[in-house]
Design a protein around this nucleic acid. Structure first.
Length: 415
DNA sequence: AAGAGCATCAACCGCATGCGT
DNA sequence: CACGCATGCGGTTGATGCTCT
């Protein structure tokens, strides 16, 4: 190495170790939807959290950081891109063949190893559905011994050269044997590389699963009972639910601002979700951030390590403060919502209302001219003849007091 | 039943490579 | 050409489960 670049895994705050099923789900869901053009950016972009919710919750900046970090921890992929790539290639890829190696596969490995040595990726390219890591493990645990013992037997059929396997002098010919098992590169066309995956997990299912994950995750984070009241607030997070019950939930009323009383109720409810203190509140408690959960019982205090690394917070800032930049979570959210619309899972009018509402408050796609122009075209078609819509599109000016301007840097406070 | 030793394999780490600027 | 970055590759580690005593 010696190129002056620290490994991505060195970044403080990134999770290591075994992957949880939830993380797997998030990774698979994200890749199935967006592919993996950039492994480094993937974990960050996989945080498909609607930042608008945070804005609506009127969190102050530290509260936002806390909530966002918790969501990164639980709903996002707090993993380095390398780890994501490895997990995908070695375990989550849909064309992975699980289970024991067949006799034929083992013989092929032994033969190819004789020809190529420890070129595991080349060997893997000749064994569809098998990864280099898997082959390497099998070799080290089983085949090496067998190969040694069989090597003393010249009549071993495994090493007979009559099988038509590629010549050792030509790695290209070896590669040509590949049954497109590899496709790992990440630079190729995902559609071609993983056709089975695309067909097995349709986007609609992925989105649904994703939303369900987000629901349960938020429940876990904030230790909220899944009662009727909180369900109304979950509805706010779940665009698909808005379509099914757009007029009954306090949240949708809040969004459309068609009813000030309901809006106030929703606001109170949402405020009750977040009771937090900043690390500065307690001089003796710099190392942890506490998020005290909603009212009684169990009065549980969730503890998460306070992340001192500026890069980490910058990463979050990229998501939020620079949310208009391409590749940020808003892009994912944008696609997410658009996909939902396409699948008729969200009322188009509700969507436009939400957009209009956020536009009014200058919260959506801040600073992004492209998105702003898009929004303009999206909102204008809203039926101007409808008096209801007309009223709903006019956001009461008082509503603006619920929101706040977000600072651009988390380090405005002394460190 | 309990502990030690072994086997397995997912995941990590450091380096190599290729590409864009 | 040098540099920085993203990704690929192969060696290694460590957690976990299994088997044996």
């Amino acid at each position: 190495m010696g190129r002056g670049r620290a490994p991505c895994c060195d970044k403080v705050g990134l999770k290591k170790g075994p992957w949880t099923p939830a993380e797997d789900t998030r990774l698979v869901t994200y890749i199935s939807k967006y592919g993996h053009g950039n492994w480094r950016a993937l974990p960050k972009q996989a945080v498909l959290m609607n930042n608008s919710v945070f804005k609506l919750l009127n969190l102050n900046y530290l509260q936002f950081k806390e909530a966002k970090m918790r969501l990164m921890n639980v709903t996002g992929l707090l993993r380095c891109g390398k780890s994501c790539r490895l997990r995908w290639i070695n375990y989550l890829r849909p064309d992975i063949k699980r289970g024991n190696f067949s006799q034929e596969e083992e013989e092929t490995i032994i033969k190819l190893h004789r020809q190529l040595g420890n070129k595991w990726s080349k060997i893997a390219s000749c064994l569809p559905g098998r990864t280099d890591n898997e082959i390497k493990n099998v070799w080290n645990t089983h085949l090496k011994k067998r190969s040694v013992s069989k090597g003393s037997n010249p009549s071993n059929p495994c090493i007979a050269e009559s099988k038509g396997l590629p010549n050792s002098s030509s790695s290209d010919s070896i590669s040509s044997l590949s049954h497109s098992n590899q496709g790992i590169g990440g630079t190729g066309d995902e559609e071609q590389e993983h056709p089975t995956f695309k067909s097995e997990i349709p986007p609609a299912e992925s989105n649904k699963e994703q939303l369900e994950n987000m629901h349960s995750t938020l429940e876990d984070i904030f230790q909220l009972p899944l009662d009727e009241q909180s369900m109304e607030i979950w509805d706010m997070l779940d665009e698909s639910k808005k379509a099914s019950s757009p007029s009954t939930s306090a949240c949708s009323s809040y969004i459309t601002c068609s009813n000030q009383v309901d809006a106030k109720e929703a606001e109170d409810k949402m405020h009750s979700l977040f009771k937090s203190k900043s690390p500065n509140d307690d001089e003796h408690d710099h190392d942890m951030i506490h998020i005290e959960t909603k009212e009684e019982p169990p009065k549980e205090i969730l503890e998460i390590p306070y992340e001192p690394d500026r890069d980490f917070w910058d990463m979050l800032d990229d998501d939020f403060c620079s949310s208009s930049c391409s590749g940020g979570v808003f892009d994912g959210l944008e696609s997410h919502i658009n996909a939902a619309i396409n699948e008729d899972r969200i009322g188009e009018v509700d969507y436009r209302r939400l957009r209009h509402f956020e536009n009014e408050l200058e919260l959506w796609m801040m600073g992004n001219d492209h998105h702003k122009s898009l929004m303009k075209t999206e909102i204008e078609p809203l039926n101007p003849s409808s008096t209801d819509d007309e009223n709903e599109n006019k956001v009461p000016h008082d509503s603006i007091k619920y929101f706040q301007t977000w600072p651009q840097s988390p380090f405005t406070f002394s460190s």
